[in-house]
Computed example of a mutant assay.
Amino acid sequence: MRVEIWSDIACPWCYVGKARFEKALAAFPHRDDVEVVHRSFELDPGRAKDDVQPVLAMLGKKYGMSEAQAQAGEDNLGAQAAAEGLEYRTRGRDTGNTFDLHRLLHFAKERGRQDELIQILYRANFAEERSLFTEGAERVVELAVEAGLEAAAVREVLADPSRHADEVRADEREAAELGATGVPFFVLDRKYGVSGAQPAEVFTQALGQAWGERSPLKLIDEGGAEACGPDGCAVPQH
């Protein structure tokens, strides 16, 4: 069975949702027969490559909230990440264009290192003090090498903006065709869709249903699950 996960490195709920899904997958009896594929979804595809903003400023601009309100939302999100065993920096993070990261994830898929790379990129963006967006290509090369990729090959991909660009755009078109308006968005064997960072129990249910049934794609949405969309990410207030 194949599980496709549309996500963006800049999406905090994708970071949390991946952990919740993996918790369900670890307990799934057929987990060794499940292939997980990460697909591309840019939250802000029009953002210039050199447009890097502090997260709190971005939240204030998108939601019209005060810095204190934005910080409270980040603190709450950090608590939810911690509940899943994830580190999350609630202060000092920034955000930027993720297109090159998506291109590199497609390259990593060819080399069988996609899941390793996406987890390292999430960690770098949400847990580490060093910026994923301001240090230049060599920072990304360093992280890709940690994921098991060759530095020279990674530099070649990053230097050529056409490499894997078509695959990124194809993923984004397909997400739209499937009705995904935000991420994370999970598609299980093209039978069921799960939208948002749902509890692990919802993923457990979806895995079982997708394994045992043959039917058109159905959306499993418990309602109110946090997700990120083109206008930004839901900010928890309590």
Rank of each mutant, 00 (worst) to 15 (best):
R130G: 11
L149R: 00
Q205L: 15
V16G: 06
Q71V: 01
V183S: 03
A227R: 14
D32T: 00
K49Q: 15
Y88K: 04
H102Y: 05
S131F: 09
V140T: 13
T98Q: 09
Q114K: 03
A108Y: 05
L158F: 01
F185Q: 09
E226I: 13
A210P: 06
G78I: 03
N76Q: 15
V141I: 06
L43M: 10
R31H: 05
L56G: 06
A165V: 00
A180T: 00
F185N: 08
F203V: 02
L121W: 04
A175V: 12
R111S: 06
A159S: 14
Q198F: 01
E172N: 04
K23N: 08
R163M: 12
L105N: 12
A19H: 01
V140M: 09
K191A: 08
W6Y: 15
R123N: 09
G17M: 01
G208A: 10
P236V: 11
V202Q: 09
A176D: 14
N97E: 11
R103W: 09
T204A: 15
L149M: 10
A152T: 08
E156F: 00
Q119A: 15
E146F: 00
Y15N: 02
S162V: 00
Q80P: 06
V37P: 08
C11S: 14
E201Q: 10
A57R: 11
A153M: 08
L56A: 14
T98M: 10
L59V: 13
S131W: 08
A176H: 11
T204E: 15
A175C: 08
F41L: 07
V202A: 10
L207W: 03
A68V: 11
D8S: 07
V154Y: 04
H164S: 06
E201F: 02
F28G: 05
G212D: 12
A81G: 07
V34G: 03
E128H: 02
I120F: 02
R130M: 09
T134E: 15
R89A: 12
K218M: 13
L104I: 00
E150H: 09
V202F: 04
K218C: 08
T98A: 11
A144D: 13
G224R: 07
E116A: 14
E84R: 02
A176M: 13
V36R: 02
